Amino acid sequence: EELVKLQGERVRGLKQQKASAELIEEEVAKLLKLKAQL
């Protein structure tokens, strides 16, 4: 659960930094994978 929170914050940070869409999608995919494991 802690990992999900951390990953969510990372995604939010990337969006604020206007990171590339590919990078954000990659991180979102990791986030969804972590959530699925809960």
Rank of each mutant, 00 (worst) to 15 (best):
A21C: 06
Q7C: 01
Q16S: 11
V11M: 08
G13R: 11
V28D: 14
K18E: 14
E27H: 03
R12N: 10
V4G: 05
K18S: 10
A19K: 05
V11C: 00
Q16K: 11
R10S: 06
L31K: 11
L34Q: 12
Q16M: 11
L38V: 06
E22T: 13
S20R: 10
A19S: 06
E25I: 01
V28A: 14
L34I: 06
G8E: 15
L38S: 11
V28L: 04
L14K: 06
E22L: 07
R12T: 11
V11R: 10
I24E: 07
L6P: 06
E2M: 01
E1P: 00
E9A: 06
E25D: 11
E1I: 07
K35G: 15
Q16G: 05
Q17V: 05
K5E: 10
G13F: 12
L23V: 14
Q17K: 09
L32Q: 14
K33Y: 04
L6I: 03
E27C: 00
L14M: 12
E27N: 08
L6K: 14
S20L: 00
S20W: 00
E22W: 01
K30G: 03
L38I: 03
L38D: 11
K5V: 01
S20P: 13
Q17H: 02
K5L: 03
A29M: 09
L3C: 00
A29P: 03
R10V: 11
E2Q: 02
G13V: 14
Q37L: 07
K30N: 08
A21M: 13
R12Y: 05
A21F: 09
L6F: 08
I24W: 00
E25W: 01
L31V: 03
V28G: 06
K15A: 08
E1T: 01
A21S: 12
R10F: 04
S20K: 08
K33C: 02
L14F: 03
A21W: 02
K35M: 15
E27V: 00
Q16R: 08
E2A: 01
L23T: 12
R12L: 10
E22P: 10
R10Q: 08
R10Y: 07
K35N: 15
V28H: 10
L23F: 06
V4N: 07
I24C: 04
L6Y: 05
V28N: 12
L38T: 11
V11W: 03
L32E: 15
Q37A: 14
K18N: 08
E1S: 00
V28E: 15
L6D: 12
K18C: 08
K15D: 04
E27F: 00
E25N: 12
E25C: 04
L32P: 13
E1A: 01
R12K: 11
E9F: 01
I24P: 09
E2V: 00
E1Y: 00
E26W: 01
E26M: 14
K30Q: 08
L23Y: 04
R12F: 06
L14W: 02
V11S: 05
G13C: 15
K35H: 02
Q37C: 09
E2G: 00
E25G: 09
E22V: 12
K18R: 09
E26P: 10
R12H: 11
I24K: 11
L31Q: 13
V28T: 14
G8R: 09
E22M: 09
A19Q: 06
L6E: 13
I24V: 10
G8F: 04
Q16L: 09
Q17C: 00
K18D: 15
K33G: 07
A19T: 06
R10E: 09
K15M: 14
K33H: 10
E26A: 15
A29R: 06
V28S: 13
K18F: 02
S20A: 11
E26T: 14
L32S: 13
V28M: 12
E9V: 01
V28Y: 11
A19C: 10
K18V: 05
L14Q: 06
R12S: 13
E1R: 00
A21G: 07
Q37E: 15
K33R: 08
E27P: 06
E26I: 13
V4K: 01
G8K: 15
E27G: 04
L14E: 12
V28W: 04
L32I: 08
L38W: 07
A21D: 13
R10H: 07
K33A: 08
R10A: 08
S20E: 12
K5F: 03
A19N: 03
L31P: 13
L3G: 02
L3Y: 01
K35T: 15
Q37S: 12
S20T: 07
K5N: 07
A19F: 03
E22Q: 13
V4Q: 01
E27S: 04
L34H: 09
K30T: 05
I24H: 14
G13M: 15
E27K: 01
Q37P: 13
E26Q: 13
Q7E: 00
L31A: 08
L6T: 10
A19L: 02
V11K: 05
E9C: 02
L14D: 05
E9H: 01
K18Y: 04
E2W: 00
G13Y: 07
E2I: 03
K35C: 15
G8S: 12
V11F: 01
E9S: 04
Q17A: 13
E27M: 00
E2K: 01
Q7R: 01
A29F: 00
E27W: 00
A19D: 04
L14N: 02
K33V: 03
